[in-house]
Write a protein that binds this DNA or RNA. Sequence first.
DNA 1: GCTAAAGATCGTCACATTAA
DNA 2: TTAATGTGACGATCTTTAGC
Length: 322
Amino acid sequence: MKDEKMNNNSQEEEKDVETPATIVPVVMSTAVNGQPLQVQSVIHSAQSVIQATPIQQAVQVQVSGVNVSEAGEESSQGPTAGGDGEIERKKRQEIRELSRRPSYRRILNELSSDTGPTVSRIEEEPANTTEDMESPGTITIAAGNALQNFPTTIVSSGGTIQLANSDSSVQGLQTLTMTNAGGIPAGAIVQSIQTQDGPQQIFVPAATETSHISMDFFPYPSVNVARLGDVQYQIRPATTLPQGVVMATPASLHTQTQLAEEASRKRELRLMKNREAAKECRRKKKEYIKCLENRVAVLENQNKTLIEELKSLKELYCHKSD
DNA sequence: GCTAAAGATCGTCACATTAA
DNA sequence: TTAATGTGACGATCTTTAGC
């Protein structure tokens, strides 16, 4: 069952990593996966993970796996020159299996050079502003970061709509408030919005006199929401519905639709957050594994130094006893 | 160049833990 | 108690590699 996996308490792991470490005064230089190590910081991070409890076992398997892989790689320089027999084939197969972890090494290299702040994974669209607004009745605007270049006034078929961008510096979620100065014609358009995911449309319900529309923009199209007064409407890709189809329901079904869409929105939000959490979790895990690898390197060197020291002391002792 | 195999990555689910 | 968050497991998909 999944119970056993839960023994690997994540908080414990975090605490282990954050435990104040003692700096071990060892002078050495080493390298892991070709990366030169700063001895002090390596020892620091290594010390902090030494007390790792249940998860340590699991990760140690990985670490030893990497070591084996590295060893195998050294011995696999090109195809075997002479032998063609079954044994040679098996040997080559073995070597291949051992040496195959290129992407993993690449990740480690990236991790070791990653010192800056987390870079946003959401590609920013170039600003897309007034050019699409010329056809009457359809307003094409830009979402995402392009909102900062957004015009404050655009003309719809029903009149003038004032746009106020709440905070264009917040990535991922943007709120756009539209105040309808002229009144949106009942049953008519619909605002067409250009987002990172292509044009999207908001359908204004028939016979609705509204003076206020607000829209939330997430990086994920299915989460984007428009509100007319108290009613929420999901902003969907324009391609999912034929032009002119009114998505909004009659007043009697508003509550039901509202609930369903609210649930759907919550789910999308939860999935989005979980997606990000999973990414963060994996990043931490890689970092943790890297710390353990560093620890291995440090301990190996430390061991080597101690053996040398013991050797020289033994020699000294032998000389003196003679 | 094509293909199969294996590893890596990602999104999601389920559940444990934590914070309010 | 409950909502939010963290993380292992799983399956789908992508990437990389070797062999042909």
